[in-house]
Design a protein around this nucleic acid. Sequence first.
DNA 1: ATGAAAGCGCTAACAG
DNA 2: CTGTTAGCGCTTTCAT
Lengths: 335, 335
Amino acid sequence: MAVTIYKIAEKAGVSSSTVARVLRGDLKESWKGTSERAARIRQIAEEMGYQPNLRARAFSRGKTHGIALLYTNDAWIFEGVNSQVVNSFVRALRAQGYHLVFVPVDSDGEWEEIVRGGQVDGCMMLQRMPKSVNDVLKETGLPIVVLGDNADPALPHVTVDDFGGAFSATKHLLSLGHQRVGLFVHSTIKPHCSVEQRRAGYESALDEANLESQLFWRVSENEVVDVLIRAEKRPTALLCYSDLEATMIVHAMWKYGIKIPDELSVVGFNDSFATRHMTPPLTSVAYDAEKLGEIGADLLFKQMSAPSFSVDQPAAIQINQKLNVRGSTGPAHLK
Amino acid sequence: MAVTIYKIAEKAGVSSSTVARVLRGDLKESWKGTSERAARIRQIAEEMGYQPNLRARAFSRGKTHGIALLYTNDAWIFEGVNSQVVNSFVRALRAQGYHLVFVPVDSDGEWEEIVRGGQVDGCMMLQRMPKSVNDVLKETGLPIVVLGDNADPALPHVTVDDFGGAFSATKHLLSLGHQRVGLFVHSTIKPHCSVEQRRAGYESALDEANLESQLFWRVSENEVVDVLIRAEKRPTALLCYSDLEATMIVHAMWKYGIKIPDELSVVGFNDSFATRHMTPPLTSVAYDAEKLGEIGADLLFKQMSAPSFSVDQPAAIQINQKLNVRGSTGPAHLK
DNA sequence: ATGAAAGCGCTAACAG
DNA sequence: CTGTTAGCGCTTTCAT
């Protein structure tokens, strides 16, 4: 049988509340006699190997200190930069005594029990959820934060300035003299706000320069490569939706003997580890993943401390992107 | 105020125990009158939007249905194949009504409160933990499973046959006529059992063939590349600790115009997604990550159902590796 | 099969 | 500051 505050109280000859208060540090201990007794209680607790029962505490307080990470797609949460976001989010939670609970959203509805049954005190999402899921979440009134998507503006969210990122990346290419700049989004990319935003930023920059866009929209890498190696008016620069696309292209270009950046400039997104070690290192647009996680956690904590928060006006925060210029982009050499 | 079994009991004119039993399905409902009443209770619960309070249940039952994923290193749990293991582990837990809780093991000792305070019913680890951590875990008596490492044989674990994997990969290279086969382990690789096992498998295969090993042990890729492009007796085949090393090497070879597999055969480990799409696709040794996660969950559940399980004899399970031969390995062309 | 009642261990409101 | 007391909502005896 585990050690409880009652056992300690008995041994110390005080009431259980006193023990609880002392061990929780809820006491000023101003007077000398008090602090001596407190010390004795702590000592006894230590000796008996007391450990607060977190289940009882959760029950009594009505809080588990758990935050759900809701996700519908296995791989997504681990993909590239997302894992960094999750890591920093976990750290931020931990700093406040909270922990992350993995909750895959499947058809069997177990996620709903967890969310409705008070197994967690809040929810985080890294992707857009079906409307039915959002509805349930709103019903529960739990604090919520969505990272990297704003499909449902009624949910507090932190997004990334993908428009700005794509815009400045395109500008960078234009400033290098490129006249034909393509945008490549692979067919496997799931729809979420950053796709559209990046496209808009890209097109906007081209518009300003009175140049035409050249979209490779939701196609396989082969279709892009075909154009890059054969077409008369092939792009001399390619903005890729992510570093994954960029990597595919760079590989293919090597294979066909097309030099980067001399014959093709390539820009990626997310600045993943591997691409910094490519030859040449990849120019890439990226945001501060750590920061995204931290801000997300903050937003959650704000809601927890101010119940009316999310009702009044859902928060919408946006963080910047930065263009990291490396070796994969260079001046245009037009034929 | 949330709907409780008492509210339902009142409305249905029965006792709370009956409600609890009906809703939990603890009833045979053999007699007609009984089953009718049960139906009515269910109906009322439904109408009132009853949702069992999981905190109360956890408190009462003494189980949270949470399993901790303990880890000391951020990136590790998300790296390559590990994410697949975690995913399948989560699915297996979920199938039994359990969920995964992220518990970073840091110096502040919060992990200890979680583990000792009964916030979780069991623990999983994907890497070796400091002895002090293992000791605490043993003390709690919680079910435990370690995936991919067996540093502490007293802990139930599931490992991968890295010896066999490296052995058969090396055999494959030898059968292609290679006489100088190197092994490359990058300097960033953390020590764990697979490193040693792969080395042993590699050396064992070479021993059998009376060939000398050529180790690139915990070095940077540049040191390996230097040898590969310059050395007189350079290896004609290279076994890499993981696909990451293999990718680095393949890139570098491209850069220096060394053809793969004609001038160098390369084998990786883990068969990660990206390397299947390399040019040429990478020959790689891999295990079934899904299976590892499932077996791990099984092992945990076995311990939960049989309290004496882990005391009697800690379980040690090993799963096979498979060599996936692709384009990056070919016949040796000795100069 | 059902109901009454006693926990589970901690928190919090209330008197003293 | 301390002790008493009443929950928190469900599970689990133990009678009936």
